[in-house]
Computed example of a mutant assay.
Amino acid sequence: MTLTVKDALRAYARMLNTCDLEPLSPFLSDDFRYTSQMVLTSIGSKADFLTYMREKLDVIRGRDDRPVAEMGYLPAMFNRPCLVLSERDSNTAICTVLTEVSNQKLVQIDLCLIPTPGSAKRTGERPGE
């Protein structure tokens, strides 16, 4: 199977929507990078990301206001696939998620305020729900 950007986004969404690392971890490259425009530092390895995300999912799992990840695309970026993270109850958009795939592995995930989640067209697809 050829890993596409959409496949990588669906795997990340499934991981977040189910609070389970298993849908995502097989696709991560060893030198995987996780960045967020809301945080000054990034995570620069698969091992560090898995440790970070395991702890984060434990916290999310216990919350009533868990975020939800929905497939979308960005018309202003030539319909580039993305995710929109939003608050489950209010559906208020939090951020846009972009990914990079290389050599059949997910090499980067970026949580973005720009492009804005409001600029994305949401599809209604919420993998894992």
Rank of each mutant, 00 (worst) to 15 (best):
R80L: 07
C19F: 02
E125A: 08
K56F: 11
P23H: 04
A120T: 13
I60Q: 14
G72K: 07
N79A: 15
K105A: 05
M1Y: 02
E125C: 11
M53G: 00
T123W: 12
I94K: 11
K121A: 13
Q37W: 06
Q37D: 13
P75Q: 12
P115A: 09
L57H: 06
I109A: 05
F49D: 12
Y52A: 10
C112W: 02
L9T: 04
S86G: 05
I43Q: 10
A47V: 00
T96M: 02
E100K: 08
G44A: 04
L98V: 00
P23Y: 00
L3S: 09
I43W: 13
K6D: 12
L111R: 01
G62F: 05
A8T: 08
R122V: 06
L9N: 10
R122A: 04
M77N: 07
D64W: 01
L28K: 03
R14V: 00
E129T: 02
Y12T: 01
F27W: 11
D31E: 07
T99Q: 03
A120H: 09
Q108V: 09
S102M: 06
N17K: 05
R14K: 02
A120W: 06
R14Q: 07
R88A: 10
D48R: 03
P26C: 07
R88S: 13
P117D: 15
R54L: 04
M77S: 03
I60M: 02
S119K: 05
R126V: 00
A76E: 14
T116V: 00
T41C: 15
V84Q: 11
K46M: 03
R63F: 06
N91L: 10
S36A: 13
A76Y: 13
F78T: 14
R88P: 01
D7I: 02
L74Y: 09
V5F: 08
L3Y: 14
T123M: 08
L113S: 03
V101S: 10
E70S: 06
G124S: 01
Q108S: 12
E55H: 11
D65L: 03
P23S: 04
L83P: 10
D7V: 01
C112Q: 15
R61F: 08
S25L: 07
D58W: 14
P81F: 08
D89A: 14
L3G: 09
S102I: 03
L24M: 12
M77T: 14
L3C: 08
D7L: 03
L40V: 09
P75T: 10
P75A: 14
P127T: 01
P26A: 06
D110Y: 04
A69V: 00
G62C: 04
V107H: 05
P117H: 14
V101L: 08
A69G: 08
V59W: 09
I60C: 07
I60H: 07
C82W: 00
S36I: 10
G44E: 14
E87V: 07
